[in-house]
């Protein structure tokens, strides 16, 4: 079978390209919402952890956060996904995409938390003292002084985490979600050719990652120019 024929069989016949476009849509939806959940959760955990480290307050929440970080970072995301699907939401009628969003969001949150905590702790403790010495309370100091500085340093790392998450969602197929990887698998199972569907899936991921990386670099450069002022 020549290239054109193989291409036609894998993508054109029976509209098989739709497995890829529909899969891409699912992958993007899962990634997008998981990134949002991950960021919210990550910032929350990071703030609790750094508050405990800096002020020794919030001990109980800090312990909970540490358990969360240990469990999530100590187990593979596929296992977490299966646990959330088959154990936690065992008999709950719930959309699988939602399950995947929750699973990847919770997973990403742990990594975001450590990135953001690193950023917060990297802000000189003198900044906190300066804010407090002016009569600002801890929260006001965090919001107006510490977080803006921390955010600037961690933004590139956060963007990279989002890129990693995009690729990690490729295991969503384990709970029979037709994401882009599964889309390729479905074509493969129908045409029995490995080359076309796998290369197509790889290319789509690659293009998305390259585009996102470009964006991140642009962002980084803008932030760097901000520093020179």
């Amino acid at each position: 079978m020549n290239f054109a024929e193989s291409f036609r069989q894998n993508f054109i016949e029976e509209d098989r390209w739709r497995y890829l476009t529909d899969g891409l849509k699912t992958t993007l939806i899962i990634t997008f919402f998981a990134v949002i959940i991950g960021m919210v959760l990550g910032f929350l955990v990071a703030i609790i952890r750094s508050t405990y480290l800096r002020t020794k307050r919030l001990l109980i929440p800090d312990i909970l956060c540490r358990i969360y970080l240990t469990v999530i970072r100590g187990t593979p995301v596929v296992v977490q996904l299966l646990i959330i699907y088959f154990v936690i939401f065992a008999s709950v009628p719930i959309s699988k995409t939602f399950v995947a969003i929750i699973a990847f969001g919770i997973n990403s949150g742990a990594y975001v938390a450590e990135i953001v905590r690193g950023g917060i702790m990297a802000v000189d403790v003198g900044q906190l003292e300066a804010g407090r010495s002016l009569g600002l309370n801890y929260r006001q100091t965090m919001v107006s002084i510490i977080m803006p500085q921390a955010l600037k340093t961690v933004l590139p790392a956060l963007a990279n985490e989002a890129i990693v998450l995009l690729k990690e969602t490729s295991v969503a197929g384990y709970i029979a979600i037709a994401d882009i990887t599964k889309g390729g698998d479905i074509i493969r199972s129908q045409t029995f050719s490995a080359f076309m569907p796998l290369i197509a899936v790889a290319l789509i991921y690659l293009i998305m990652v390259v585009l996102l990386t470009r964006l991140v670099n642009l962002l980084e450069r803008r932030l760097a120019s901000n520093d020179k002022r």
Binding site: D124, G126, K152
Partner: peptide, 12 residues
């Protein structure tokens, strides 16, 4: 008021 050795101005 308090004035610090390392100024602690807000760089952002």
């Amino acid at each position: 008021g308090m004035v610090f050795q390392h100024f602690n101005l807000f760089p952002h």
